[in-house]
Amino acid sequence: MNRYTILIYTENFIGILNRITIIFTRRGINIDALTASESRLEGIHKITMEVSVTEQQMVHLAGQIEKIVDVIKAYYFKDDEVVYQEIALYKVPTESLDPGLEKVIRQFNAHIIAAEKEFVVVEFTGHKQDTQALLEILKPFNLLEFSRSGRVAIAKPKFSVQEYLNNQTYNH
């Protein structure tokens, strides 16, 4: 098993995410994380997924994803081939604010991005093990809530969806 980041470029078509996820459901494969947003190219969406599968499964999955009519291209990468980040938000009661907490926030280079009477929200961005480490530390501070995003990722190898789209279609 390897961990893969899959970058999927699609048309902005209702139901496309469903078509992609049922490929995984049918094979009993869990999607560890998923984010979707508009890509750099106007009208083209980028879906980022994180899965743990064998290489053979990954090749098969990518084939099935690319087969979807409204999918433009699917690329997959191992962890060392992508730059990726996850953002985490931590809701901490105001009464827990003490020098100990301040030290932790400084150490992690985390930010307090909102402060209310009852609580503050701490933001920290990094890899899962980093945001997880901060989570473990904040738990004793009566942490109220925690939320972590899926990966956003940029691949190191060069590829261009634009170039792919510019290429002449081969018509039969």
């Binding site: 048309e11 009519v69 409204d70 433009i72 279609t169 081969y170 039969h172």
Partner: peptide, 11 residues
């Protein structure tokens, strides 16, 4: 005549 995300034939 064509859908840009759909390339059914290859050279």
């Amino acid at each position: 005549l064509g859908v840009r995300s759909y390339r059914p034939y290859v050279k």
